[in-house]
Simulated scan of single mutants.
Amino acid sequence: MTRADLPLRDTVALVTGGGSGIGLGCARRFAADGAHVLIAGRSADRLRGAVAELEKDAANGARIAYAVTDVTDEDQVRAAVARAAELGPLRAVVASAGGNSTMGPLTSIDTAKWRETVELNLTGTMLVLKHTARLMAAAGGGSFVAISSIASSTTHRWFGAYGVSKAGIDHLVRLAADELGASGVRVNSILPGLVATEMVDAVTRGGPVLDDYLECTPLGRVGRADDIAALAAFLVGPESTWITGQNINVDGGHHLRRGPDFRAFLEPVFGADGLRGIVAEGN
């Protein structure tokens, strides 16, 4: 591929959660497509390793940088956005930082961990949107992609705050798309199904939960970070300029069936009664 063929040539992109998993996959695709990329995350060591990896696959001339960032800290988000802007006018953003601390039945949920998960997934995405959209709107446009989850729209029993917070992201995307369209800023979300990353290694290495995921997935395989990155590259690229306010499933068709059954992991911890909402007295 020659430089003239690179669809993101000289685009400046910010990817949160860019040190691993889906975020790293998006950053790798953007850099290979010619973008200058800043990755943000909480671990300096992981980010440095990711930068070295990205530089191997980046197109000639693409610059790679990083910023240690907790997306729940507005000052750190503001600083990361300013650092990205040093590479040039910011045009592309992927908000991939996220996680879940609340696996288990709602009647046994740790309220502090519920708040922690909502803060990371939903408030963190909002803060990244708030500060990147300002720059993109002032510059005449850009594209913001939030990484949501199939759990936002298809019930995943015992996922606690995760699906709830991801559903909030999908609504945030639609709201932002409506508000920011007048400034040429497009806002969409991607809803991945089960993707092979470190976060879900306990599932993807095999067992009854993985078997159930595959049973619920028409295309019959686990996703790859590259599957998500391909859509993210399209959504920030030149061929999607009339697409905004969309929540798009990339899940092998899993959303057509039902959420996964995590009973094999959770019943030994909470008991069969606990999974149906019965809590022992005093707990």
Rank of each mutant, 00 (worst) to 15 (best):
I147P: 08
N249H: 15
T154S: 06
A225C: 08
E198S: 11
H171Q: 15
R263L: 00
S149T: 04
G181E: 03
S165H: 01
G206M: 10
Q246A: 15
H254A: 11
A225S: 13
S153Y: 03
G259R: 01
L135I: 05
L235Y: 10
F234K: 02
S183C: 03
S183K: 04
F234R: 02
E179R: 14
A176I: 08
S165Q: 12
A167M: 06
G259Y: 02
R186K: 13
G142P: 01
W158G: 07
N188S: 09
R224H: 04
G220K: 11
Q246M: 13
T155G: 07
G163I: 10
G207T: 13
H254C: 01
T155K: 04
G207H: 08
D227M: 03
A233F: 11
L175D: 05
T154W: 02
E179N: 03
L235M: 06
I243M: 07
L219S: 10
F262A: 15
A232T: 11
T217I: 11
Q246N: 02
L191Q: 15
G207I: 12
G252Y: 14
R258C: 10
V200K: 11
W242T: 12
A232C: 13
D170L: 09
A138K: 13
V203L: 10
F144Y: 08
G207L: 13
G253N: 07
R186H: 04
Q246R: 15
S165A: 13
S143C: 05
R221F: 10
Q246I: 00
G160N: 07
R257G: 01
A225V: 09
D251S: 03
V222A: 03
R157P: 12
A151P: 03
T155V: 11
V209G: 00
V250E: 05
H156L: 03
V236E: 10
F144I: 15
V187L: 09
R134T: 05
N249M: 02
A177I: 15
L219G: 03
P238C: 14
E179W: 11
P208Q: 04
A139R: 06
G163Y: 11
I248A: 00
G140I: 02
L135C: 02
R205C: 00
R134C: 01
V173K: 11
T155Q: 14
R205I: 04
S240W: 06
G160P: 04
A167L: 15
S183T: 01
A176V: 11
V187G: 09
H254R: 05
Y162M: 07
L219Y: 10
Q246E: 10
G193Q: 07
I169A: 04
A177P: 03
W158E: 06
R205Y: 00
S183N: 13
T241E: 14
H171P: 01
